[in-house]
Design a protein around this nucleic acid. Structure first.
Lengths: 341, 341
DNA sequence: ATGAAAGCGCTAACAC
DNA sequence: GTGTTAGCGCTTTCAT
């Protein structure tokens, strides 16, 4: 276990100063007019002995850590996992590493984590924010740290964000069910006061109203145990036998809802038509395949990382915010086929 | 944007030395016999002005970054995403942060990433290793950096690892199909020379041999585009109409395989029985539900993080390795029901 | 019981 | 063109 070489070691070995080495290694040889010969010598020696700079020291000195914090609700949720993957790729391409955490939508935990990331001098933040985190976000911005929110935004904070057009998504979906002849359409979602969930609910309600239908809304509490989600859905469906269609507010609720439907032995779409927010494998492969409002994951990830990189490299002012709303895509499958009756 | 306070600032404000502050903040007041009064004063002041230590500086000085690198094949794969989530929780509880990357099973990329993590003085590594990474792993160990592998191991390197008993898993699954009356059982998997995949194949082959059956093996190339996976499976199934059952080597192949089966209009299990390695939502919700060899994710994650934490806090010697093999669990569902014929 | 001071490895302003 | 040097903020030995 040999001691790691430092810039001083290589300067000494070559009988030159640390400065020259530093300049050369940072590609400033040109502008500092260091002789081509010396540059080559250093580069070759560095290569030879396998010198690797200590990035911690560099960060301490420069104040930049080349790290982006990614804070999602839950990395094991396929929506966030997919976004994470895409963001990771772009970040690495641009010389940034990702450090992440799952917030569980827990405000206190999130505040905590932001603190920890600040202590480590993370350069930028990508956050799917829980409620009540406005102050912390604003404080980051005040400290000149770029923040991009996604999946949801904070109503009382002027920040960059990228979201799907949630309201339009459920609106379109509910409308389609109505056009397809369904009369008793329910909306089942998580009890969640956040804006993206409120918007989805609102889109549903608007469509119900426009079609002069009755609304049925169930809100189930989030739990890390799927049983606790499936059960209340099952109860709700049992108590509302008149329903002929249901829109689920998230992929997770949708998956649990499908389990409930399966347990009840209901036939989709004959007994109950189904549409869910957030597309994923399960919906595609389900029999029958389930119609879903897909979030444009690729686009979201790209916009998010673009906004952040622009601020990180100074192309955009930190305080000049941009709000991006991307339409969802209704992937129509047979679970919402026109009612026969 | 006020400048961040340093330990010197607070020492100056209180008219004491940096040393005392440092001792107090690091809980060494007792053993350094610093007066209770001073401790209180400092703690209170720190609280009041909201001083936060610069972890970068601390890391530079101590050589510890309190960060664990998590290198998975692809964070958007539900198996890895779930493991990541569990590991993350335990790591944070123990004062460690996670920085992660997806390796895509690409050896060069992984080498690169290990280098980057080393530059940042990551304290420990959790890796689902690609082929040919032995030297890099051994070099980490030689530098006294704890490494725990999971999901697979390296045959020519003595390391800690935690894996599922892959061979027993496919063996049991194939055996069950045979017992259930299936005669032409295929194994479809990724073309992948890694030990976990070889083991799964071997378990299948062993069971086929024991039951005096004919073997049918298809290996498809990995691609980030599902189309490229589904297509060859479809072709294979088309060319082997005699098959009455199939075992898929991974959840991803399984999901694509189900798509192919759907496109061919085959009925499961009447036309073709199905079992897949790796359980997840899709298999549970599929109609009919798909039998799967579940990896004990919770156990894997726990064992992995336990091994690593033990080494990080010096409870175990770095060079004293431990290999943990956890049996998979066959989740029997109707896709593999006894053949009627 | 408390403080002075030497570094951890790097960058960059300044001097030659 | 190249070298000297003063920190970045923290820990820790040694002195008092």
């Amino acid at each position: 276990m040999k001691k790691r070489l430092s810039i001083a070691d290589i300067a000494e070995a070559l009988n030159i100063s640390k400065t020259s080495v530093s300049f050369i290694l940072n590609g400033q040889a040109e502008e500092k007019r260091i002789s081509k010969k010396l540059v080559d010598k250093v580069v070759q020696y560095v290569e030879e002995v396998g010198y690797k700079p200590n990035l911690l020291a560099k960060s301490l000195r420069t104040g930049k850590s080349n790290t982006i914090a990614l804070m999602v609700e839950d990395i094991s949720n396929p929506f966030f996992a997919s976004i994470a993957r895409l963001i990771e790729d772009r970040a690495y391409q641009n010389g940034y590493r990702i450090t992440y955490c799952s917030t569980d939508n827990d405000t206190a935990k999130t505040k905590d984590m932001i603190g920890i990331f600040q202590d480590r001098h993370v350069d930028g933040y990508i956050i799917a924010p829980p409620e009540g985190i406005e102050d912390d976000i604003l404080s980051l911005q005040k400290n000149n740290l770029p923040v991009v929110l996604f999946d949801r935004y904070l109503q009382h904070a002027d920040t960059d964000y990228v979201i799907t057009d949630n309201k339009a998504g459920t609106h379109q979906a509910t409308n389609m069910l109505a056009k397809n002849g369904y009369k008793k359409i329910a909306f089942i979602t998580f009890a969640n006061p956040q804006v993206q969930m409120r918007d989805r609910l609102q889109g549903y309600l608007d469509a119900i109203k426009q079609n002069n239908l009755e609304h049925f809304v169930a809100e189930v509490l989030f739990s890390r145990n799927d049983q606790d989600i499936t059960k209340p859905i099952l109860d709700f469906l049992n108590q509302h036998k008149q329903l002929d269609a249901v829109v689920f507010g998230t992929n997770h609720v949708g998956a649990c809802g499908l389990k409930a439907i399966q347990q009840l032995g209901l036939k989709v779409p004959d007994d109950l038509a189904v549409i869910s927010f957030d597309d994923y494998d399960v919906f595609q492969l389900h029999s029958p395949p389930v119609t879903a409002i897909a979030q444009p994951i690729q686009q979201i990830a790209n916009q998010v990382i673009n906004l952040l990189l622009n601020k990180l490299n100074g192309a955009t002012d930190i305080l000049q915010t941009q709000q991006i709303v991307i339409p969802g895509q209704l992937h129509i499958r047979s679970s919402s086929a026109a009612k026969i009756s």
